[in-house]
Nucleic acid binder design. Sequence first.
DNA 1: TTTTTTTCGTAACTATCGGTACGAAAAGCA
DNA 2: TGCTTTTCGTACCGATAGTTACGAAAAAAA
Lengths: 177, 177
Amino acid sequence: MISYWADGPTAVPINEICRRSGASKPGIYREFGSDDGLKEAALEAYHDAVLTPLHNILASDQSFWQVVEALISFFVQDRQQLSLPDGCLFFAMRAHKDELGDLTRAKVDQLRQQTLDAYESWINRAKSKGQLKLEIPSDTAALYFDAQNGCAMRMQKEGIANDVIEQTLRLAFDGLK
Amino acid sequence: MISYWADGPTAVPINEICRRSGASKPGIYREFGSDDGLKEAALEAYHDAVLTPLHNILASDQSFWQVVEALISFFVQDRQQLSLPDGCLFFAMRAHKDELGDLTRAKVDQLRQQTLDAYESWINRAKSKGQLKLEIPSDTAALYFDAQNGCAMRMQKEGIANDVIEQTLRLAFDGLK
DNA sequence: TTTTTTTCGTAACTATCGGTACGAAAAGCA
DNA sequence: TGCTTTTCGTACCGATAGTTACGAAAAAAA
């Protein structure tokens, strides 16, 4: 997961995974079946490590703007301090979708839908509680939040400082007020 | 250019380029020197075809908000009607930067800086003409516009309808008012 | 201990990648 | 026409991708 995250899901061959992990190649294949299976498992692990916390933020009972603040903090976490790579494996896989196998691509699609649903129901709850007035549909707004997350992760991967990214996120979300 | 644009800059092998173009492999190598040289040339062609028009919009003497409208129209152009692929080769290359050769990567960096500079000087002109009040630095705002462009291109590549993308762009830019 | 079963890694296989040696064909020139 | 030069593509190269056959080692059962 870390290798794909740091170097790109299609940039690390199985041989390199073996070298880094100390596992033998047949060992990898006995455990994951194929390159595709390994990537799928890595994405599953990423889901547990990163996407689930994100969904938990969206499902929390804080006010809309408290959640927005939590999202911003989450997006611009200092990765070096956490010994985690910059960027986002999930968005990287979405960008490399055409080069992934069937299993991984299916998982990407599933997690994307799951994430958009999480945004949408959060937005619907905020609307019904009167914390948010929006003239656009909730699914479009969900796309917007997901998009801003993607922006932030791409910028982080490109080396932009987190506090600069934070300023752009505030610019993006201030328009909702 | 079209092949890399439609299928991804690292997803189309030289053999496939030969098949599609009808050129022989040594012909490709005599013309472009290497895979890297070919990708660089494709990106250069993309610059002429897409990035230059974008820079022209930014350099035009319209008002700030007229330019914003022009940008939105430019980003959500119907590609099918123009027989052009969805998404953006430039952003695709930025996402695949680690898998590109030295020449192409250098060109990507150069064009990225050129684009950010174009945004920045446009924003500075708008500020000095009093058309735009912003508390954030112009280079950060430039990153923001570039980021929204990236969002839009990723969404288009993922199959989101252009009118939905347009709504998210308006949401992103309305915050500047 | 001996036998059976399971675990595991060396070493190979096939396909495909980017890249090129070299001879044939075409073009230019006499 | 005959000779030189340039243009061009077949057929190959080494490297590396993902994948696996198969024998050795370890564990379990006898």
